[in-house]
Amino acid sequence: MFVMSEIEHTLRLPPHLLNRPLNAAIKGELESLFLDKVIDKLGLCVSVYDILSIDGGFIFPGDGASTYTARFRLVMFRPYVGEVISARLKESTKDGLRLSLGFFDDIYVPVPLMPNPYHTEPDPEHKNGTRWVWEYMGENYPIDWADEIRFRVHTVNYPPLPVEQGKDSEQKDSEEKDSRQKDLKPFAPMVITGSLDADGLGPTAWWGKVSKAKPPHLCQRPLDQAGCKSRDVHQWQGPKGESQHANPQDRPSQCFSEKLPHTEIEPALPDDFSPHHLMPYQLAYVYGGEQS
């Protein structure tokens, strides 16, 4: 979840900080520069861990301040793909869940990654809200607001900064309206897609209940009972009857390699990636009348 990153940065030290010790002054500047900010592909900066070296102190001609080059380590929040993290519910709508860690709010659980099979019902406590309910062995397990929710990191995306493009005025107007309707969400520089669709994920209270009924390691989800050994090698019968992605290696969603995942920055997903590229057999649930 938290990783250290080593960074070198050249910064200008304003003269009003010269009365402070150099280390403290530079640390203060670095904190104002990096803290609570997302660095592309590195994650959200949580804290300055330490300063390794400070070089320079050169005053450029015409500048009233000294310029230093500092090497330092930052504590970054960068979960690796496959990590299990506990979070709290922030929003629950028909498009899925939004979870929050308190310091990081852009965690989304889209519909295809919900525990399956599920149904939705209007939330009695929140107006316009939706409550997601997992159906298991004829029992209903709702995702409610009280519990801690465990999710597995499915992807971590760093969307590029939106750039306004100059276009013809008429086109622009109509497009602006469209885009306003489409995404009302403010821009988020780092978005985590979480998955709840595996044993042991979801509200922690679920697994207390289930394990009471059965020894936990024997808990089998309905899909597993259909005769497949593991969820990942489950064969989806395509529309023509051919099995697609029978081999786990072919699956686009298998980002979890044998290598230790957090040793590298996750590879970027293809541009045309969408949540619907995920597990094909789940789409069968979505289109099969679950969401009519």
Partner: peptide, 14 residues
């Protein structure tokens, strides 16, 4: 800003 090492060590929550 220059990233010298993106993964200079992993920290536990603790």
């Amino acid at each position: 800003m220059k990233i010298l090492q993106s993964n200079a060590g992993v920290l536990t929550n603790c």
